[in-house]
Design a protein around this nucleic acid. Structure first.
Length: 242
DNA sequence: GCCAACGTTGGC
DNA sequence: GCCAACGTTGGC
């Protein structure tokens, strides 16, 4: 992912910590990509951006504006197993998040415009599923919440960080991050295989997971979830594992 | 380790 | 703006 997963640590804004994360690269665009795709609820408090579009859906609002769809929930991918990127271990599983001060970490290292734009749409208090990727048992393991809306990702300026971006500058940071705090583990591990089975069934039946981005945007490490998707997945917690 | 999907780069 | 080459993600 952005890919993907990312991770990093620490807490808030105050400290800057270091990097870890994964993702990488940079891109080129100009940055202006601020668009986001989804609209979130209100707007961000910070910069505002416009949206552009990608994929997310939008619905017409009744009033005629197309409002874009507002996402209130998210899925964040992170890798729970060690993997080295430019000499740094990008491992950051949910246990690592729980071990951070205040069980809070900054989600740094996102170097994909689409993921970054979603990140910028995240609002304080919104919840996200914590998804373990690129590991033996991929799937949802817990729930986190946004405790600080987007601000510059300090790892883009750190030459020693695997996600250093020489094309960015402090006057106009290209990449952002948010802080997330652990909320709870899901009542049980919800494996990718199970989500996929529902996705396939819903594709036929028109169920809630038929458009889940996990299955169409493989490489997106930060994905918005509709309320229906989030609630359906939560309902799986109560079921027996299949 | 393989490989499919897909995003990015860069020539033209 | 098109598109081929290339790089990355991430499941298996």
């Amino acid at each position: 992912m952005p890919w993907p997963s990312r991770k990093r640590s620490q807490a808030s804004a105050e400290d800057k910590k270091k990097p870890e994360t994964k993702q990488a690269k940079h891109e080129s665009h100009e940055e202006e990509e601020e668009e986001e795709s989804m609209p979130s609820a209100a707007e961000s408090s910070k910069p505002a951006k416009k949206s552009s579009g990608w994929a997310v859906k939008k619905e017409a609002s009744s009033d005629g504006q197309g409002s874009k769809q507002v996402y209130g929930h998210w899925l964040l991918k992170s890798e729970p197993e060690s993997r080295f990127e430019k000499g740094a271990d990008v491992k950051f599983g949910i246990e690592d998040l729980k071990a951070e001060p205040n069980q809070t970490a900054c989600w740094d290292g996102i170097r994909n415009y689409q993921a970054r734009n979603f990140l910028r749409d995240m609002k304080l208090g919104q919840e996200a599923f914590f998804y373990h990727s690129n590991c033996k048992d991929p799937g949802i393991v817990g729930i986190v919440k946004i405790v600080k809306e987007f601000y510059p990702d300090h790892t883009q300026f750190d030459k020693k960080d695997p996600h250093y971006d020489s094309s960015s500058n402090k006057e106009k940071p290209k990449w952002s991050m948010v802080d997330v705090q652990f909320v709870r583990m899901t009542k049980r591990f919800i494996p990718l295989s199970e989500l996929k089975a529902h996705h396939l069934a819903h594709t036929e039946s028109g169920g809630p997971l038929k458009n889940m981005l996990l299955f169409s945007r493989h490489r997106l490490s930060i994905q918005p979830l509709t309320k229906e998707e989030f609630e359906f997945i939560l309902s799986l917690e109560e079921e027996k594992p299949r």
